[in-house]
Amino acid sequence: MVQRSDSIIVGIVSRFMVPLIQLFALYVIAHGHYSPGGGFQGGALLGASVLLLRLTVGEQPSNLVFHKKYGTPMSGFGVFIYAAVGVAAMIGGGVYLDYANLPIAGMEPAALRSLGILLVETGVGIGVMATMIAIFDDLAKGDFHD
């Protein structure tokens, strides 16, 4: 019922929009503790940009951006970053995810909190992006454009 569109306008516009969407997603992740947004929204934007390529230009070109075999490992890696920051704070002497106790020498607690929330947001972003792409790849089973 849904067929591939061979329209050149759709292909060109989506290929032009994808870098802009990804740049905005990185801004949302990195600026998340000053303004609305954060790891989840930025990761969902990153995932949506790759899914836009999957839908418009096809399986093989979009695998160059994010190969489908990396979907599940990257989602696990994002959760690993989140958990590792929490456990590192425990090693430094605090409770789980208490960023002020991250074991990095020579940094103020305020700077450590800023760094810790950025690391956690990065992990959440990677996890959400890879999970969105993995769900789509499992649904489409690779024959979306055949």
Binding site: V2, L51, A140, F144
Partner: peptide, 12 residues
Amino acid sequence: GITGILFLAALY
């Protein structure tokens, strides 16, 4: 964004 794409993949 995401919900529409997933519905589209199911509709296929």
